[in-house]
Design a protein around this nucleic acid. Structure first.
Lengths: 223, 223
DNA sequence: GCGAATATAATAGTATTACTATTATTAATA
DNA sequence: TATTAATAATAGTAATACTATTATATTCGC
């Protein structure tokens, strides 16, 4: 079966020239993902990227205003992709419970296959978001416009899941807080499981993070 | 009433020369807290610190190996202080429920008064941990020895609260995960409430974060 | 209270890095 | 073919983390 021809549009505030419209642009995105994953965002430099690609540094700046903007671009892309999958997966499910279950699974499990979008490795991107995105959130430097832009997609994801929860219990007062705790907590637990395992309850079950948050959510919202 | 003469020892791997043993050292710690709070960790530089203090940059390096080590020192100090308060506050409480309640309060509320330790402003430090500590956790650069050292106190806090939870329900399988979700989630919610309020359920009640996590924990562990 | 160790000051310097500027060359396009 | 735009090649700037060196205080054993 052919792949769907879907395309994720990233807000134009996040780039100087749309990297999606040229081979070089896609190469920058592809290689940024690989390098950030490999080195961590602090050790990722434009010089290293330009050497990996074989084009001068100045060319990178013709696509992205700064190295931070590359990370924001990737984060925006990621959450747009998650939102698309969230809508797709929960569509037509018969009950609110099943929708929430499906959402929790999507938001807590690691991405295991790389398929839909040719030049983006979703597995690596997922791992970058897990370990590097907090550094982008918790910053005062970025201008407000950009911050608004970036968080708009993230907020929409939170809002969508929040609405599903309110379908189950319309009186639950902390739906947004619960969803963002779930999203960030799951990323953090995955990071801990890999890097500081004694902070989690690692066991043989590969789904334990999902199970934990499923239990957490349903116990919290049941009347 | 006189203050208690307690003293928090920071692991010697985290400094070159113990800043607690000299006036200049204490000045470095005091002013680092103020500057990191004011500028954020990225914009905090040793040069700015040295200008604020009025001593040359090289002197800073005689106390701390790097600017990162200053942050690790502060994080270590913070969690030792939290651990001390945790033990103190839960001591002699009659039931495990009350211990857990008290622990949740301690771990989720903002620090509002600065008292015990003369040269450390606990209010500012608490705010630094809330907004800057994630950047220190999520890093691959630091050497393993230091990472172990730093996390040892944090882990002990998680372990202590975890034990209290198991006192209530010894079959609960996710106690560590629940506690670290609580700790990091509360910091994150406080950060969101200040910086990206639409991601939380802000309302007039100043204790809503505490209430949310209290409900979350007790609903999760009740049999 | 003297001499030796130690702490700090003053200053200079290196390597890295984010980012800019300039000009040459190639590719796309009208 | 002429024009425009994209990219390459190269150089340069300012900031910064950190090191090195020497001079001047301060502390402390005796």
């Amino acid at each position: 079966m052919d792949k769907l021809h879907i395309h994720i549009d990233v807000s134009p505030e996040l780039f100087v020239k749309n990297p999606d419209n040229s081979d070089l642009g896609k190469k920058i995105v592809t290689n940024s993902i690989e390098l950030i994953h490999e080195l961590g965002f602090e050790n990722f430099t434009i010089k290293k990227l330009s050497i990996k690609i074989g084009s001068p540094e100045s060319t990178m700046y013709r696509y992205f205003e700064s190295k931070h903007m590359i990370l924001f671009y990737l984060i925006y892309w990621y959450w747009s992709w998650i939102e698309y999958r969230l809508v797709f997966k929960t569509h037509n499910l018969p009950s609110a419970e099943e929708k929430v279950k499906s959402a929790i699974k999507l938001l807590t499990e690691s991405v295991e296959e790389d398929s839909t979008f040719s030049h983006i490795n979703e597995i690596l991107l997922d791992r970058i978001i897990m370990s590097e995105a907090v550094k982008a959130y918790f910053t005062k430097r970025i201008d407000l416009q950009t911050e608004q832009t970036h968080f708009s997609v993230y907020k929409r994801v939170v809002e969508r899941v929040s609405q599903m929860i309110l379908e189950i219990n319309s009186n639950y007062p902390y739906s947004h807080m619960l969803v963002s705790t779930l999203i960030e907590g799951a990323h953090q637990q995955r990071f801990f499981a890999e890097n500081i395992p004694s902070l989690t309850d690692v066991n043989n079950d590969p789904c334990y993070i999902t199970k934990f948050y499923e239990q957490l959510v349903f116990n919290s919202i049941s009347k």
